[in-house]
């Protein structure tokens, strides 16, 4: 496994994207959560907010670090994961499941093509590790 599931797409800022028809679900990758360590707070946008690709849509905080999270593709926010308010640890324990952050309405499907596959993302990680 599946540190990086094949059915997802990835960004260089370590977000993952699951495309589901006209919507997409977004979270941060296993690598990102491990780098941050224990996450204590997730700041999420308001439903309905329209954001462009690479805009910051929120942030994740550990005790001594904070990291912004960016829109992998443009769109309007459809849902945010309210459960993270009380249980930010979902992002650590289950980054691709309970740790999801937002779903968005895809505005420009062509932006999806530029995202990385799981294999490409893993290559990207190992390149940057060296």
């Amino acid at each position: 496994m599946a540190d990086y599931p094949d059915n997802l797409l990835y960004t260089k800022d370590h977000e993952w994207v699951r495309v589901d028809g006209t919507s997409a679900t977004v979270g941060i990758t296993h690598f990102a959560q491990a780098e941050l360590g224990d996450i204590v707070y997730v700041e999420l946008p308001k439903v309905g907010e329209k954001l462009a690709q690479n805009d910051s849509f929120g942030s994740v905080e550990s005790v001594k670090a904070v990291s912004e999270i960016f829109m992998p593709i443009s769109g309007a926010i459809e849902k945010v994961n309210e459960a993270l308010n009380d249980s930010p640890e979902h992002v650590n324990n289950d980054p691709y499941g309970e740790g999801w952050m937002i779903t968005l309405k895809i505005e420009n499907p062509s932006e999806i093509d530029a995202l990385m596959s799981a294999a490409e993302y893993e290559d990207f990680l190992s390149e940057n590790r060296n």
């Binding site: 707070y41 905080e61 550990s62 005790v63 001594k64 670090a65 904070v66």
Partner: peptide
């Protein structure tokens, strides 16, 4: 909640 503060953010 120190992530609000200048030394981190």
């Amino acid at each position: 909640l120190a992530t609000r503060e200048q030394h981190i953010r």
